[in-house]
Design a protein around this nucleic acid. Structure first.
Lengths: 120, 120
DNA sequence: TTGTTATATGAATAGTTGTTCACATGTTTA
DNA sequence: TAAACATGTGAACAACTATTCATATAACAA
């Protein structure tokens, strides 16, 4: 016996019109990937805490780790990701590095998220 | 030799006033965790695509997998997560299950995210 | 210069997660 | 009833990720 099961498309398109209509309305794949990338950044409580820390004041790495209660190293690693995502910026003053928010949408995105939580 | 290095707090709080002020303004930890959980859900392109699929019409599992180009099984697993996060709801019609959006904030959150992308 | 402090970073590790595969469940149809 | 079909789900696996540890870098202080 060569093959016991017939290989078949496991899925039948039931509502072809809706599928095609929706396909045309979808943003292009690249956009959706980028969108997922940004939310992936927000999907970690350490990073959320870092961003919240910076809502009103700039802070140095040391301050942030003390505030959040995590290793300086861990914070530094996460700040690198936030930098890459253009969510924070920094300025150096001697050996101290001050980080601050670099995006105006973070607050509104967080607020929308909070509203979802509150309703559930 | 028992210990070569002296264990020390690796971090000095430099700006104690800012740290304390910020600590008081932070949402409580539980809220921040919940917030991260929601964004974690949005942080996957398959789930983003599913949610976008449902922006204008309800769709059955088969339609969604055909549209997105992923296994029915993978879609089904992801729909479970979206259900748990109360982002989608469903209705059954015979053996067909129709899914639809169950949250009014998804669109505005996505739009804010898109605005961030457009600026970078 | 030497020691100290603030921050960055590579490597290793443990934990998490998305997909696949095989199969179960439940519904419809012949 | 048996076969076909839509969907759900547990287990396994591969890929990814957050933290830790050790150490590097760079600026300052003595």
């Amino acid at each position: 016996m060569i093959k016991e099961k017939v290989v078949k498309c496991e899925c039948t398109i039931i509502h072809n019109d809706i599928v095609e209509k929706t396909r045309k309305e979808m943003p292009k794949d690249e956009t959706l990937y980028d969108l997922a990338e940004i939310f992936k950044i927000f999907g970690d409580s350490t990073r959320i805490k870092i961003l919240y820390s910076l809502f009103k004041n700039e802070m140095c790495v040391c301050d942030i780790s003390a505030l959040i209660g995590t290793t300086q190293s861990a914070i530094s690693h996460q700040l690198r990701l936030l930098k890459q995502a253009k969510l924070v910026k920094y300025r150096k003053d001697g050996k101290i590095v001050y980080y601050s928010l670099d995006d105006s949408h973070v607050k509104s995105i967080f607020n929308e998220g909070l509203r979802h939580i509150e309703e559930n």
